[in-house]
Amino acid sequence: MCDNCGCETTEENIFLPKEAKIIKAVQATADVKLFTLKMADGYIHWDPGQFLEVSLFGYGEIPIGFASSPTRPESFDIAIRTVGRVSGAINKLVAGDSMFLRAPLGTGFPINLLRGQDVIIVAGGIGLCPTRSLIQYIMDRRDEFKKFTLIYGAKNPSQQMFKDELATWKKSSDIDFYDIVDKADENWKGEVGLITSLFAKTNLNPETRAVICGPPIMFKFVVMELNKRGIKNENIFLDLERRMKCGVGKCGHCQINDQYVCVDGPVFPLSKAKQLEEAL
């Protein structure tokens, strides 16, 4: 910060990552690994919905959302699905190893607009990971929010993540939690079908603030359900997925219209996303 006007004058190398130590690494599903991390220099501050560029030298960098809440600052979680070369290499790491991070990046969930309101989070597949930063935040500061609903859809029971937490949420009176799978296995006793079918179970007030994170195809149908219940587009927030390569609004890969998803997002109000023709 500059002494005169408080403007950002930092001239550090924005591409130089910082080291983080892996405290714990567990398989969340067959192809998703959950890492609990601590910065080697001990310091990091983030908001729910912000993201990191996670890297391993010699392999590359990938954008990953924070999967835990800043209300639990002693460490932080990220979940990585094995998709390509970088994620594959990172997911071979174990507790005690290091990874290299640039964070926090982007604009997260608008906590100030959610505070004091009914909130619904709709998470599809791996979309539960970035939204978990907000779920934990709301659960930790439960008094600051009104009714809290969470809807979670997974492909099949084996793809469900954070099973212990799901069980806790199911029992908790602090959260109306509903989950569903596209395809059941022989042990599954819950709901089967599309995520949108769970809306029949909810009782949403039109002033509810909604957060959606999941595969792009899911957005359209979830938005229809929300709109049907009188929820306005300015109160619906989307966590968009794009190729956020540099994370600092330079490289151009995540650009939608004149917006850089990695700086202006990844969270956008639907009312704004609707004006960005390539967003949805």
Partner: peptide
């Protein structure tokens, strides 16, 4: 616009993270 790639040196223990000019007209870009 640019892409960022890591490359190992021949010793396979050291290397560089490099940015390369990239093109939004190419199919892979987005």
């Amino acid at each position: 616009c640019f892409d960022v790639q890591d490359k190992w040196n021949v010793d396979q223990t050291s290397g560089v993270r490099t940015r390369y000019w990239d093109s939004c007209l190419t199919e892979e870009f987005s």
